[in-house]
């Protein structure tokens, strides 16, 4: 006999407990238990320490690589600088115009879909198992981070907060999105008044592209157009860049257009991120509305 009776008993009990734990964690959860929060934060503290020397050395190596291209980049940037001054001037003129028009229309508050505050955070670790597209950041509930907030880098959106512990939180990256967490988006149209709307519904792992389903069959959809969040789908504010359309097609029943979208942000090289807090502004607005009435 490989197992004696006592061992067999222990084995069966532990298997039952194990299946129980797996079943418990398979549910869709946004709140963690206190014990989980504690482990997340304790290990997060260690991660913050260990991460420092390692990022320091990797930064030095990537800096050396970058130094080679500095001269070329500098030349290009100089030419861009001239364009930038023009743009800045235009920008000032336009924002003045907008203010005047808003005054004329008696519209005091700007588009509330676009209002948000940002929380800056550093990435401390990535999930060791690549099937889980998660990263850990060093800000948590104490800094105002809550589950389902959008997370962006300078280049574009990278994902959303999955769970928040008091001092750390876990971010689900865009390439881990599935049908249970979709994003309402607009595809920006240069020459038309209205943008086309749709939903990011899935991530195609073989092509490494996001799957975008439009709400209707739209002939204006072309590759190269920029996809923004529309602010209608819940907690994500309006105007976060998500990616560029790469391929256009029709869905299975040929009723609506679909498109494959390449994320603007590099999902595998993130160091610093911003968490988008939209709840605070809406609460303030509610308070203002209450004061008005």
């Amino acid at each position: 006999m490989f197992f004696r009776k006592k061992k067999l008993f222990v084995l069966l009990i532990s298997l039952i407990i194990l299946v129980g734990i797996i079943g418990f964690s398979l549910r869709e959860r946004t709140n963690l238990t206190v014990a989980e929060d504690f482990v997340h934060d304790t290990v997060g503290w260690f991660q913050a320490i260990v991460n420092k020397p390692i990022t320091f050395t990797t930064n030095i190596t990537s800096n050396i690589k970058e130094i080679k291209n500095v001269y070329k980049e500098n030349q290009i940037l100089k030419t861009r600088l001239e364009e930038l001054r023009k743009l800045e001037y235009e920008n000032q003129e336009l924002s003045k115009e907008i203010e005047e028009l808003e005054l004329a229309l008696d519209k005091t508050e700007s588009d509330f879909l676009m209002n948000f505050t940002t929380i800056h955070a550093s990435v401390m670790a990535r999930s060791k198992d690549q099937w889980f597209k998660q990263i850990t950041i060093n800000k948590g509930q104490q800094d105002g981070v809550e589950a389902n907030m959008a997370v962006i880098t300078g280049e574009g959106m990278i994902g959303k907060v999955q769970t928040a512990s008091p001092f750390t939180s876990t971010v689900l990256l865009l390439n881990g999105f599935n049908r249970s967490n979709r994003i309402s988006v607009n595809v920006f149209q240069d020459d038309q008044k209205r943008d086309i709307s749709g939903f990011i519904v899935d991530y195609d792992e073989e092509r490494d592209l996001l799957l975008l389903e439009m709400n209707e069959n739209d002939p204006d959809l072309e590759s190269g157009q920029v996809v923004f969040s529309s602010g209608l789908g819940g907690v994500f504010p309006k105007g976060l860049e998500i990616g560029k359309v790469k391929e256009v097609g029709v869905d299975r029943y040929e009723l609506t257009s679909i498109a494959y979208v390449e994320p603007s942000a590099k999902l595998d090289e993130v160091q610093h991120v911003m968490v988008i807090d939209r709840m605070m502004t809406t609460e303030e607005e509610n308070a203002e509305e209450e004061e008005d009435t």
Binding site: V43, F46, Q47, V50, I54, T55, A125, R126, D208
Partner: peptide, 29 residues
């Protein structure tokens, strides 16, 4: 053991994406 657990996450974040060969490959430490 704790240090090993922490290193697995940090290495996945910082080192593994730098290897060019790894375009569609994935490594689990």
């Amino acid at each position: 053991c704790v240090i090993m657990v922490v290193l697995e996450g940090t290495i996945s974040l910082n080192v593994l994406h730098m290897i060019d060969y790894l375009e569609s490959k994935s490594i689990t430490p």
